[in-house]
Design a protein around this nucleic acid. Structure first.
Length: 535
DNA sequence: GCCGTTTTCGGCCCGACTGTTTTCAGTCG
């Protein structure tokens, strides 16, 4: 709850807000949070640390070991680290413990060999490339009707830890046997009659669930999650004397819903909630009040403000990019090559940019059904000034401004840097605001709330960068933008014509942040965009 | 430790798979 909250709880404590009004925070936690913020330490935590070695939590990371077994290992054998565990297992001391046996001991040893301890998450493109071939494979199996990838993949999270696949099939279908025999399977974790778990060579875990067609809606709902959302809805059901499981909604023994997801939601008096919102961060209250947002869709997108050509580090010409954009149904496409500071990407100096602007004029005279906008991905220099002279920026239709260097500045300095850049009247869109690269580079330290407020007040926009490695803003930052009332622009940041369609990933991210078409600049007509960009 | 168009006390989502134990606890999603 705290991690997903748009505001820092420390700020809320300073403002003397009543924390116990937040969901899942009662009087006890509110008091502890206050103590933590005010004193920097927490007596209850220190006490718990004394009672239980903190290292024990590492043991629970191992598949098959939970709190009960770790407790036995610690109390009976004094095991408090992975090294202790391995030693005990090799000496055959674990098999004698109550609740353990020879097989469990062997499994522990084998997990110690294979598990790295830090399972990585996969970005959306990686996940899609692993999931789609498997989905097609399952679809071909005898007796299979539907194959749907559920879980965080369906909720469009920026990364997924595993794949959850739902299959509806006739009784007796060999789909699970075929699943564990899939070519990419490295090892089989479990295999039953209705579900199975495997690990693929890539390291990703895949959970397969097989249910009859009549349970499709209930199973899809259950398997989509999130867990927190499911638990909250099952609670609502309990209050109505209903039970929800993956087979349907039940009143006593009688099945009253479950063929579709809509029927499951209806059983607790709610409209269907889009998967992207199912995180138990307010969607249930909103749905109950009829206040769900009308989420932005790919169809709403009328143009793209961020793409590259061969002039900097892209792979296609302006014409090729524009024609592809036209084929995607866009009204406009802004060419935003790098500015000179970004030398590794062959960034444009004033002379080359000005040549490009002339080229765009000529192409616009020639091309029909698409307007090319003049833009540039202008570097924000360390002192907060822009990398190109105002005189040249004035010739552009818009700018997409970004940090590429000095990403490690302290929070205050980094924030001031961006705020100063934003004061330039030619600054329009802050591209990939935090600079994070998923699994590669952490976000830079920015006071996002201040930046969002300043952007709103000065008529600037923040980008939701659609590159699967970036997805920056995060969904949480989108939520904050929505609350503050700051507009966003979804940009593909395409470096080739065939990746202009990464736009979908950006739209998904905006949807997770509850944004509607109204909140997104590039759902507007060209005429509206032109006037909205003037500061 | 949270929560309450039943409740300020007594509940707390639900089911599959595995392995150990002979009917189920532990773990997981």
């Amino acid at each position: 709850m705290i991690r997903g909250h748009p505001h820092s709880l420390a700020d809320l404590v300073q403002q003397k807000a009543d924390l116990s009004r937040l969901p899942h925070i009662g009087s006890a936690l509110a008091e502890k949070i206050q103590t933590l913020v005010k004193t920097g330490s927490l007596p209850a935590l220190e006490k718990a640390k004394k009672r239980t070695p903190i290292a024990l939590s590492a043991l629970m990371q191992l598949p098959g070991l939970g709190p009960k077994r770790v407790r036995v290992l610690y109390h009976e054998l004094g095991i408090r680290s992975l090294a202790d565990l391995e030693r005990a297992a090799r000496r055959g001391r674990i098999r004698a413990l109550p609740g353990f046996g020879v097989r469990t001991e062997a499994k522990i040893l084998s997990e110690l060999q294979t598990s790295t301890g830090q399972e990585r998450r996969f970005n959306r493109l990686e996940a899609r490339e692993l999931a789609e071939p498997l989905r097609r494979f399952l679809q071909r199996q005898v007796g299979v009707k539907r194959v749907t990838i559920a879980g965080s993949y369906r909720r469009c999270r920026d990364t997924v830890g595993d794949l959850d696949i739902l299959v509806t099939a006739k009784r007796g279908s060999p789909v699970i046997r075929e699943f564990v025999a899939y070519d990419e399977v490295r090892d089989v974790v479990s295999q039953g009659t209705t579900r199975s778990t495997v690990r693929l060579r890539s390291g990703i875990q895949v959970d397969l669930r097989v249910v009859p067609e009549a349970s499709y809606g209930a199973a899809l709902y259950y398997f989509t999650g999130s867990r927190a959302h499911n638990i909250a809805v099952r609670r609502m059901a309990l209050k109505r004397g209903l039970k929800i499981n993956e087979y349907g909604v039940f009143k006593a023994e009688k099945r009253v819903a479950g063929r579709t997801e809509e029927s499951v939601f209806a059983s607790v008096g709610l409209p269907w909630i889009p998967p992207e919102l199912r995180e138990n961060r307010g969607e249930l209250t909103a749905a109950a009040k009829g206040n769900l947002p009308q989420l932005v869709q790919l169809n709403d997108i009328r143009g793209d403000f961020h793409c590259h050509t061969r002039a900097s580090d892209g792979h296609n010409s302006i014409r090729e990019m524009a024609e592809t954009a036209r084929d995607l149904g866009y009204e406009y496409l802004a060419i935003s090559d790098h500015s000179r500071q970004v030398r590794v990407a062959h960034g444009l100096d004033p002379e080359r940019l000005s040549q490009q602007l002339d080229d765009i004029d000529r192409l616009n005279d020639e091309l029909r059904d698409i307007v090319i906008l003049k833009s540039c991905e202008v570097d924000i220099l360390k002192n907060g000034s822009l990398d190109l002279p105002d005189k040249l920026l004035a010739r552009l239709d818009l700018t997409v401004c970004a940090l590429h260097y000095d990403l490690h500045l302290p929070r205050k300095q980094q924030t001031e840097r961006v705020l100063k850049a934003m004061q330039n009247r030619y600054f329009n869109i802050l591209a990939h605001p935090t600079g994070r690269l998923i699994n590669e580079r952490p976000p830079c330290d920015l006071d996002m709330e201040r930046i969002l407020r300043a952007a709103r007040d000065q008529g600037c926009y923040l980008e939701v960068n659609a590159q699967p490695l970036r997805l920056d803003l995060t969904d949480e930052a989108c939520l904050l933008a929505r609350e503050i009332g700051t507009g966003v622009a979804i940009g593909s940041d395409a470096h080739s014509a065939d990746t202009l369609n990464f736009m979908q990933f950006g739209v998904d991210q905006a949807r997770r942040g509850w944004l509607s078409a109204h909140d997104v600049l590039n759902t507007r007509s060209l005429q509206a965009v032109r006037s909205m960009l003037v500061r």
